[in-house]
């Protein structure tokens, strides 16, 4: 009976203790965090990393996992490539988006396509953490955890609101760099992207930003 009482007590305490680790940042803290993130983002010339993407699907009570690599330069070039379980390449270069799925390749001019402009802007912002202040796409709230910060992004634009409840960017407090992106849909299904083996300011061959 005593043991049962202790278990019940622990079950009550553990969630409460976990909840305490997350705290909404004060206005001054938010400003300081965003300044540090922007400062780090400004010092980054290139990023290369691998990633895993896990999508939970509540209706199927299952998840889909894919893996890939990412390359970014502050000249506005980005390569987002899925390598497993299938190949898909998305490259932003010279104001053009090139996509390759299997043998099918297509290119879109971003200057004439607002949707792709928004996609590119959000992808780059999500990876670098840029534009957290005065974001035109999201209302941003910062949270503090013990070992990381979180930017909680609620979409402003009507169509984005229909798709996503919110997006969370997780920053490592020591490097002020994004290491995880969580995209939560209206029905609660979540896509989690974990960036791994992150290397910054390492030379990236230009060929990474073209698609054959």
């Amino acid at each position: 009976m005593k043991r049962l009482f202790i278990i019940i007590l622990l079950l009550g305490i553990i969630p409460a203790a976990m909840a305490q680790t997350m705290r909404k940042a004060t206005a001054a803290e938010s400003k300081s965090m965003i300044q540090k993130i922007n400062s780090m983002a400004a010092s980054i010339k290139t990023i290369s990393c691998s990633f895993t993407q896990e999508k939970s699907m509540s209706m199927l009570n299952d998840k889909m996992t894919s893996r890939g690599v990412m390359y970014y330069t502050n000249a506005g070039k980005l390569r987002w490539e899925y390598t497993s379980p299938y190949s898909y390449i998305f490259v932003i270069n010279n104001n053009k988006v090139t996509m390759k799925s299997g043998n099918k390749k297509s290119t879109v001019d971003m200057s004439s396509n607002k949707l792709f402009q928004a996609i590119a802007r959000i992808m780059v912002s999500s990876v670098t953490g840029k534009s957290l202040s005065n974001s035109r796409d999201f209302d941003v709230t910062m949270y503090c955890y013990e070992q990381h910060w979180t930017a909680h992004l609620v979409p402003k634009e009507a169509n984005m609101k229909k798709m996503f409840k919110y997006i969370r960017l997780f920053f490592n407090t020591s490097h002020t760099m994004v290491f995880k992106v969580e995209i939560v849909e209206k029905n609660g299904d979540t896509t989690t992207i974990r960036l791994k083996n992150i290397e910054t300011n390492k030379q990236i061959n230009n060929s990474k930003f073209s698609v054959n």
């Binding site: 010339k45 290139t46 490592n172 083996n197 030379q203």
Partner: peptide, 15 residues
């Protein structure tokens, strides 16, 4: 879930 990512910062000249 708690894995901290490995971060390597280099300062090579880019492109």
């Amino acid at each position: 879930q708690n894995d901290e990512p490995q971060l390597i910062i280099e300062d090579e000249t880019t492109e």
